[in-house]
Simulated scan of single mutants.
Amino acid sequence: MKISDDIHNYYEKLVMQHFTLSKFDEKYDEDFLADLTCVVLNQLPTRYIRHEVDMAFYLPASERFEMESKVKTAITKSLEFMQSNQIYND
């Protein structure tokens, strides 16, 4: 059996949505964002899905809110970590 290209971690989408809404691409370069993404995702649990529609219809609002809260917390912690690392300081 081959794992389908459709299977992905739903938290990846939530992280990218937050990055887009916060206009991180205007604030940080690609290398910083790639490292930030890794640091953020390593703090979050995995939630593998095959179809986005499954999450839209079957995810309770309370669980969606909890997932978004975890993403925001992980991003905040990761930004603090990355910015305190001398490699990324101006």
Results as ranks from 00 to 15, higher is better:
residue 12 E to L: 00
residue 2 K to W: 13
residue 10 Y to Q: 00
residue 54 D to Y: 15
residue 60 P to Y: 06
residue 17 Q to N: 14
residue 52 E to W: 11
residue 69 S to H: 14
residue 1 M to H: 10
residue 46 T to H: 10
residue 55 M to D: 10
residue 6 D to P: 03
residue 42 N to Q: 10
residue 41 L to I: 04
residue 71 V to Q: 00
residue 17 Q to D: 12
residue 85 N to Y: 15
residue 3 I to Y: 11
residue 4 S to G: 05
residue 23 K to Y: 12
residue 78 S to V: 03
residue 10 Y to H: 09
residue 84 S to D: 14
residue 26 E to A: 13
residue 84 S to T: 10
residue 48 Y to S: 07
residue 14 L to R: 01
residue 76 T to V: 07
residue 87 I to Q: 10
residue 28 Y to W: 02
residue 61 A to R: 14
residue 63 E to P: 04
residue 85 N to G: 09
residue 84 S to A: 11
residue 80 E to H: 13
residue 19 F to T: 04
residue 88 Y to A: 03
residue 87 I to W: 12
residue 38 C to Y: 15
residue 80 E to S: 12
residue 78 S to F: 08
residue 64 R to S: 08
residue 16 M to C: 03
residue 82 M to E: 02
residue 12 E to Q: 06
residue 84 S to Y: 11
residue 86 Q to V: 13
residue 32 F to N: 03
residue 89 N to A: 12
residue 88 Y to Q: 02
residue 44 L to M: 03
residue 35 D to K: 09
residue 64 R to P: 05
residue 58 Y to V: 06
residue 78 S to T: 05
residue 39 V to P: 01
residue 28 Y to P: 03
residue 88 Y to N: 04
residue 52 E to N: 13
residue 8 H to E: 02
residue 44 L to A: 02
residue 86 Q to D: 15
residue 18 H to R: 08
residue 35 D to L: 05
residue 16 M to G: 00
residue 88 Y to L: 01
residue 64 R to C: 11
residue 13 K to P: 01
residue 90 D to E: 06
residue 51 H to Y: 14
residue 37 T to Q: 07
residue 21 L to G: 13
residue 39 V to R: 08
residue 21 L to Q: 13
residue 66 E to Y: 15
residue 36 L to Y: 04
residue 49 I to N: 01
residue 43 Q to K: 09
residue 46 T to V: 12
residue 8 H to N: 04
residue 7 I to S: 01
residue 13 K to F: 11
residue 74 A to T: 04
residue 10 Y to I: 01
residue 57 F to S: 01
residue 84 S to C: 10
residue 36 L to K: 01
residue 49 I to S: 04
residue 65 F to I: 05
residue 3 I to A: 06
residue 6 D to Y: 14
residue 33 L to V: 05
residue 47 R to M: 08
residue 25 D to Q: 14
residue 57 F to E: 03
residue 31 D to E: 13
residue 29 D to G: 03
residue 27 K to F: 06
residue 72 K to C: 06
residue 90 D to G: 09
residue 16 M to K: 11
residue 45 P to V: 02
residue 56 A to C: 06
residue 73 T to D: 11
residue 68 E to P: 04
residue 1 M to W: 12
residue 6 D to I: 07
residue 20 T to L: 09
residue 4 S to K: 07
residue 74 A to S: 06
residue 26 E to H: 10
residue 77 K to W: 13
residue 40 V to D: 00
residue 86 Q to A: 12
residue 1 M to R: 10
residue 2 K to Y: 13
residue 15 V to I: 06
residue 85 N to T: 14
residue 25 D to W: 15
residue 52 E to V: 08
residue 65 F to M: 07
residue 44 L to D: 04
residue 84 S to W: 08
residue 66 E to N: 08
residue 56 A to M: 09
residue 53 V to R: 09
residue 59 L to G: 02
residue 20 T to I: 08
residue 11 Y to A: 02
residue 32 F to I: 00
residue 21 L to A: 11
residue 63 E to H: 11
residue 26 E to W: 08
residue 63 E to M: 12
residue 31 D to C: 09
residue 39 V to S: 06
residue 34 A to G: 06
residue 39 V to D: 04
residue 87 I to R: 12
